[in-house]
Nucleic acid binder design. Structure first.
Lengths: 147, 147
DNA sequence: TACAAAGTATATAGATTTAGTAGACTTTTA
DNA sequence: TAAAAGTCTACTAAATCTATATACTTTGTA
């Protein structure tokens, strides 16, 4: 399961994606629109800023905005920045690799092999899906459900 | 990430799968071969037994064994029995469903839609892969690595 | 120039989950 | 009847996650 931190980060990037090109958006606005605790969101946005995904502007009329086009920000990046590993086992994780201490031979471990397959399938989707894709999917879903 | 509990359960089922058809195997043997804390493994095997996957035999010469052929036990079952949800978001989980409290409309949520796709891909692999498959993969890996 | 708006930074608390341990009990076999 | 082996419940320690608190800095504007 993804952590709240990761989920909030994605939500925030989506709303900032919709706002791309406009004036920066305030934390409190994002927090209230997406029902995210403000103080928690502050930390998350700061992380995303320090990672180079967002710019920030202090003072009156300040706020946060996307540095890049939402079509160039992929979900997998967000997971990694917020500490959510893609893999289900540490021994098949690219960015959070750790040896399974109960495993005697990684190279011939059948369990690992299965979860390598799962990781590859997941990674494919998450590294091909951008924030812009999420936004356009919402458009499609709204059409289809007739809301 | 899968919990240790889930990982240990899979490992235990694999070793019991290799032993299928033979006399029951003792917890302590499984624990020492797979480097799993014995007391912890006891609880896990008991769960798997209560779920109908294993039979047990008390007393001298007792132990655990698979009830069904390893080809009929699928990885997804093990995840679910040991509390490891397949989905990365509670709102796309079939067996551990929960509403995202920060989400206003599930039906039109683009984030959910992406993770629905991920869940489907994962589920496909895990529900098609059996304990017997894991065992035969190990055979192939041993050949390929020349160990 | 002072004040309010807004982000920055660090620390900490509370809750939950996970991993593992302990100990007493029951059943079975030799 | 003693030893082997599983059963059951409770507990604890550690880690992690989520959220809050507090004090600080920067910026715009009246």
């Amino acid at each position: 399961m993804l952590s709240k931190k990761t989920r909030y980060a994605i939500k925030a990037l989506v709303i900032l994606g919709k706002n791309f090109g406009e004036a920066p958006m305030q934390i409190s606005k994002i927090a209230s629109e997406e029902h995210i605790p403000k103080k928690f969101l502050e930390q998350i946005l700061l992380d995303l800023r320090n990672a180079g995904l967002l710019y920030s502007k202090k003072g009156a009329g300040g706020g946060y905005g996307l540095v890049k086009d939402p079509a160039e920000i992929f979900v997998v990046q967000v997971l990694r920045l917020t500490g959510g590993p893609v893999a289900l086992l540490p021994c098949v994780s690219l960015n959070f690799y750790q040896k399974c201490d109960e495993c005697s031979n990684e190279a011939t471990c059948g369990v690992r092999d299965v979860f390598l397959e799962v990781r590859n399938a997941t990674l494919k989707i998450l590294s091909e899906t951008s924030i812009a894709d999420i936004i356009s999917r919402e458009g499609l879903l709204i059409q289809n459900t007739g809301v």
